[in-house]
């Protein structure tokens, strides 16, 4: 379970998130809507533990453990994983290096091959990570790394952006595997938190709860499809009014 309690976060001197509360139960996937600059990515980066994001108040509990002061890599090793929207190019470091790192002690040629086949990236194994990748290739590469990492909590920042219709089905399939959607519900442990602008990913991933974030606050929580419909029909302004 992921529990976020009264979380207030600053980047530099600017407070971005204000008193955010959220609970994702074991086996559940939630989605986060909100206009550009509302603080969605900040929330994901804070949960993951990027040092630029300073927690001023509140705490993050992961499987009952307070992880608020743990480092990025400690959180990753506890079972948190993240797909980056714009991952950096790391010259000289290949996709094989990244998948090997993610697989950790499970790394072997057979596992690497199987995973890359699933993501349709076999021919990218010796390529420098993210160098010259198209939008769809970046998304698949990010999900491939998560597939290898096998996190308990997956944080996804717009997994469908810049992806064509052919690729989005593959991305949905990979996501479902990462989130353990093929497991019976009672055995499912993987959790997800997905930022989406378009909501296209909801056609492929069964999400239980949706949130709307405006100006660093969660202003709405409910059925994700219903929230998406409201946003499409009336825009985020309605969410703000609803809050009032």
């Amino acid at each position: 379970m992921l529990e976020i309690k009264h979380l207030t976060v600053a980047v530099g001197k600017e407070e971005i998130l204000h008193d955010v509360n959220m609970t994702i139960s074991t086996g559940e996937t939630h989605v986060l809507f909100g206009p550009n600059g509302s603080g969605k990515t900040t929330l994901l980066m804070t949960i993951m533990g990027f040092p630029r994001y300073k927690v001023l108040k509140g705490k993050i509990l992961f499987d009952g453990k307070n992880v608020t002061n743990l480092s990025l890599d400690e959180r990753a090793r506890l079972g948190m994983g993240m797909s980056f929207q714009r991952p950096p190019v790391v010259r000289g470091v290949t996709m094989r290096d990244m998948v090997t790192a993610c697989l950790s002690e499970r790394a072997n040629e057979e596992n690497i091959r199987q995973m890359t086949e699933k993501a349709d990236l076999v021919h990218f194994l010796e390529r420098e990570i993210n160098y010259g990748f198209s939008g769809g290739e970046i998304k698949r590469s990010e999900l491939l790394q998560l597939l290898a990492q096998k996190p308990l909590l997956t944080l996804l920042d717009e997994p469908e952006s810049g992806v064509d219709l052919v690729n989005i089905a593959l991305i949905g399939k990979l996501l479902n595997e990462i989130l353990g959607k093929d497991c019976p519900i009672r055995d499912r442990r993987a959790m997800g938190l997905i930022i989406t602008h378009t909501g296209h990913i909801l056609d492929y991933v069964n999400a239980r709860t949706g949130y709307v974030m405006l100006k660093g606050r969660i202003v709405c929580e409910g059925d994700p499809h219903e929230i998406l419909r409201t946003i499409k029909e009336k825009g985020y302004r309605e969410c703000a009014i609803c809050r009032i």
Binding site: M48, F50, P51, S71, L72, D73, A76, R77, G81, M82, F84, P87, P88, V90, G92, V93, D97, M98, A101, C102, S104, Q145, Q149
Partner: peptide
């Protein structure tokens, strides 16, 4: 940080880079 998000500590991430 990108590599640390995959579970490597700082020294391991730097070594790979």
């Amino acid at each position: 940080e990108y590599l640390m998000a995959r579970g490597l500590n700082r020294a391991e991430a730097t070594a790979i880079i």
